[in-house]
Amino acid sequence: MSDTMIFAMEVFLNGLMAGVLYALVALGFVLIYKASGIFNYAQGVMALFAALTLVGIMEGQVPFAHLINATIGTEIHHFGWHVPVLLAIVLTMVVMIALAWLVNHFVFRHLVNQEPIILFMATIGFAYFLEGVGDVMWGSDIKKLDVGLPQGINTAIDEYTYGIVNYGFFIDNLDLVATVIAAVLVIALVAFAQYTKQGRAMRAVADDHQAALSVGISLNWIWVMVWSLAGFVALVAGIVWGTKSGVQFSLSLIALKALPVLMLGGFTSIPGAIVGGLVIGVGEKLFEFLIGAPFLGGATENWFAYMLALIFLVFRPQGLFGEKIIDRV
């Protein structure tokens, strides 16, 4: 095998791993979209917010310390304790559920029956709002997040591949863990949607609000649940991405990576989110490796996913797995 081939294979594998992470964020989008017709641009910021909150709780940071100090002139920053990881995760989840309730109560309950595009713009507003809240609450400096996930090169794969092609593949342990987490999450979510009463109610709401109401399903309850679920997915994504590259503003930009994944996979399809994520993860890494870096000056990852999705959509507007859009008079 030639060197290029081997490198390309390594790039391919890393692309797959990145794709899993994209899919993880995309899942949160699909969940909310299916149950409420809201395309939640704020999903990435929710992941950032969840990670910020998790770090904050673990480190014993005083929420809004910055604001409090500025208004009344004190100098408080930390409570001085450290919260164990698991407890911190549970507490963060409580915060995310509270957030879900607030969002539903103050915003999206009032936007029922609005056009999807209005809802979309509202979530952009929400993203700004939440980003501001996260910053004011926990500060905007870059934070390290360590919940004990393994990191660094996986030596087993390195040695194994070295034995075969005389070149050790670099695969990060964290990526492997992320893949496992994503797989578990997807199976759990699908099982939840298919086999539990709440899951069925959720799908019913997604299908037809009115009909769901008429058989006695509480819309508010379902929406809070869905936003909580999305909060949970955001938390998981936040943990993985936060461990990988630190908790900072750029974390919210993973939402921007997930958007083309959704366009490609279709907004309503869980398998679509996964396949879309993998295609884009692999596609952008390979494109950068084979064409972008040598011929185009590099950094093509910034736009490749979007261009791919755009071109694809022109030929298949509903995405890979989306439902066909039918125009009616």
Binding site: H66, A122, G125, F129, G132
Partner: peptide, 26 residues
């Protein structure tokens, strides 16, 4: 006037803009 740090003002601006967008859309 209040002597707050600039970054805090910038964050509050985000909150206000985001909230305004939602209020106007609602």
């Amino acid at each position: 006037s209040l002597g707050w740090p600039t970054d805090l003002a910038a964050h509050l601006e985000l909150i206000i803009i985001g909230a305004l967008i939602i209020v106007f859309l609602v």
